Computed example of a mutant assay.
Amino acid sequence: MRHGEARSTTTAAHPEYNALGTSGWSALLAQSLLAFNVESDDPQHFRGYLRNRKIADVDFIEMATGCHVAHRSADTIARDCRPDYVLCLQVAGVGEFHQGSRTAVLQPGDLTVFDATRPATVVSSAEYRNVCIKFPQRLLRLPRSHVDQLTAARISARDGLAPATGALLMTLGHVMEDISGRTRYLAVRNALDLVSTMFESILDVSGDGGKTERNVIPGQIREYIDEHLGDPELSPAAIASAQFISLRKLQGIFQQNGTTVSAWIRTRRLERGRRDLVSSGELSVAAISRRWGFKTPSHFGRAFKDEYGVTPAEFRREASAG
């Protein structure tokens, strides 16, 4: 736990607030979540609780506060600009999340997401409690242009996969201390897979059951690529032929989603390899690279470091250590 000095040892179910003042709360947010400027009616006596646990490059955060307003300005972002998303589950009280032209007003059980690279404002009621996960944008299967359509949008506690996503976030909060490093990592990765699936579901289908105007990569194309990731000869031309469409049309589908066919294949291979580095300890890095279609281990190693900032061996050591 990275911030033990700033919180009580009581459980998240009954958090003990710390008398930090708004300046202390701002400092704790900057250290544990993101930089915000905090305002309240009684800044000297502002109290709050925050708990942060980091697993690989994902932060799992629980917080409880009283009434306040937190602003994340462009100047703040310039100093703190890793491209992350923050998915928030409202646990108690009411939270308002403002970003761009949208506002999400969350009741307990509702979810929303915001982009850490853009200005945002959060307004908290009395007895406010929230669970968040902060994670790099590259970990989602969807391109940023589509997730942008969901930022500061309320995802109802009763809609689609929202109940399952909320329940999983709460469960992780309860069991995180009791499971090992590898298991914790896999649990968080599965949670992000569920988040991706929830977002895809929202973007794919409108409220009346019809297709929206948003463009997404068709499921049959995604499935074909995933089924053939291990083939080092997988190429845009092979995919277009298998799907009975022209190469130009295939490329256009991916361009509409802000990516290319080759970039999508590379990302999916790296995601699978990344998971195997944690879950398949008996496999060497070379074997994992072959399993997912990289022609040489050095090609896998270079691509992995470019994407994640560490070598496959370094990542495996860090994940095993928790």
Rank of each mutant, 00 (worst) to 15 (best):
Ala164Tyr: 09
Phe244Trp: 01
Arg118Glu: 06
Arg47Trp: 00
Gly252Ser: 12
Val105Ile: 14
Arg291Ile: 02
Val86Leu: 07
Ala319Thr: 08
Gly100Tyr: 10
Leu247Ile: 09
Glu39Ser: 13
Leu87Asp: 01
Glu314Leu: 13
Ala12Arg: 06
Tyr17Lys: 12
Thr212Lys: 11
Gly210Cys: 10
Asp75Cys: 06
Glu96His: 12
Leu89Asn: 09
Asp159Phe: 08
Cys81Ala: 14
His14Phe: 10
Asp231Pro: 00
Arg79Lys: 13
Asp110Thr: 06
Asp231Glu: 07
Arg53Thr: 13
Gln149His: 13
Pro143Ser: 09
Gly24Cys: 05
Gln137Pro: 00
Ile245Thr: 02
Asp41Glu: 14
Pro218Met: 07
Thr121Tyr: 00
Leu150Ala: 03
Pro218Arg: 10
Ala319Pro: 06
Leu247Pro: 02
Val285Ala: 04
Arg189Gly: 02
Tyr49Arg: 07
Ser289Glu: 06
Leu172His: 06
Asn215Phe: 11
Gln256Phe: 00
Glu227Cys: 04
Ala56Met: 08
Pro143Gln: 07
Val195Met: 05
Ala287Asn: 10
Ala153Trp: 01
Val195Glu: 04
Ser145Pro: 01
Leu142Glu: 12
Gly109Gln: 11
Gln243Arg: 12
Val216Ala: 12
Pro15Met: 08
Thr117Leu: 07
Ile221Thr: 11
Pro218Ala: 08
Ser23Pro: 00
Phe46Pro: 03
Phe114Glu: 02
Ala240Gly: 02
Leu34Asn: 04
Thr22Arg: 04
Arg316Thr: 06
Gly181Pro: 04
Gly210Glu: 11
Ala187Phe: 05
Gly252Tyr: 08
Thr76Met: 15
Gln243Leu: 15
Gly301Trp: 00
Thr296Met: 04
Val105His: 07
Gly322Arg: 14
Glu5Asp: 06
Gly210Leu: 14
Val69Asn: 09
Glu271Asn: 04
Phe304Tyr: 15
Gly160Ala: 05
Asp115Cys: 06
Gly4Ile: 05
Ala30Asn: 08
Pro43Trp: 05
His98Met: 07
Arg141Ala: 10
Leu277Met: 12
Pro297Met: 10
Cys67Ser: 14
Gly293Thr: 05
Ala319Trp: 04
Thr183Lys: 05
Leu34Ala: 12
Leu169Met: 15
Ala19Asn: 12
Ala92Gly: 04
Asn190Met: 10
Ser279Glu: 14
Asp276Met: 05
Ser262Thr: 11
Ala92Tyr: 01
Phe304Leu: 12
Pro312Thr: 12
Arg266Thr: 03
Asp226Phe: 02
Ser40Gln: 01
His14Thr: 13
His228Leu: 00
Leu140Pro: 02
Val205Ile: 15
Leu234Gly: 05
His3Tyr: 14
Ala319Arg: 04
Asn215Trp: 08
Cys132Ala: 13
His68Tyr: 02
His98Lys: 12
Ser206Lys: 06
Phe304Lys: 11
Val285Gln: 02
Val91Lys: 14
Asp159Gln: 12
Leu33His: 09
Lys305Leu: 07
Glu271Ser: 06
Gly252Met: 01
Thr197Glu: 15
Ser32Cys: 11
Gln90His: 03
Arg182Val: 10
Gly210Thr: 15
Ala35His: 03
Gly322Ser: 13
Ala263Gly: 08
Ser284Lys: 07
Ser40Leu: 01
